[in-house]
Amino acid sequence: MWKFLHRLSSLKYFYEWSGKWVPWLLGLTAVLMLVGLYWGLLVAPADYQQGESYRIIYVHVPSAWMSMFVYVVMAGAGFVAIVWRTKLSEIVVSECAIIGATFTALALVTGMLWGKPTWGTYWQWDARMTSELILLFLYFGIIAVHSVIEEPRTAARVASILAIIGVINIPIIHYSVTWWSSLHQPNMQLISKTPSVHPSMLYPLLVMATAFQFYFVSLLLIRMRNAILYRERITNWVKNSLARD
């Protein structure tokens, strides 16, 4: 078991197997994305209150979910990086930060674009929006640590600590609409006998959310492979595998 985990965490081994997975993951992402877009934009009915503009849900909600999910993955990898000091988990921390920041920015921008026609404003300093903005700054902080500290292993340690501390913001984002009065709607009840989103609108949302998940895994693997190539550029296995290509 430990031997297997150790082998899995070796950069060379990871580089080899991830290379086989990436094309399939990207293909699956594209298929899910196309199905989700077609279903959400053309098949799903309009909403009884908001009409057509509710369709922003299909890009806003998956982005927002991913912004939090990626953070938890990053903090988990940060924990592993601190306790076991594996290089692979350090790479996960640094690469997740940029992907997570993108999802967070998308959640904020699409939320603003949804807010203007529905609420009547792009922005309010309510608890949900403020805590999501703090999440973006946390990601920026972790990206900044990596670019300021030149030694990658020291940078990874500091970034991991910051990532773990920031986890406290995740439950705050989730419960912000329950704990405090806000302009943002309450959390959707999806796991219930009577979900608050009608099935005809819920299924395309779940397809889009899955597509975003696959996009994240694909891009994470691609970015990690780049990071490995760069970190190991002076080693023999990289030079040999290039000579083979």
Partner: peptide, 15 residues
């Protein structure tokens, strides 16, 4: 899109 084209297509576009 009910006259909300800029917002809806803007969101899908940036994404």
């Amino acid at each position: 899109m009910d006259g909300k084209a800029l917002y809806v297509w803007g969101s899908y576009g940036v994404t």
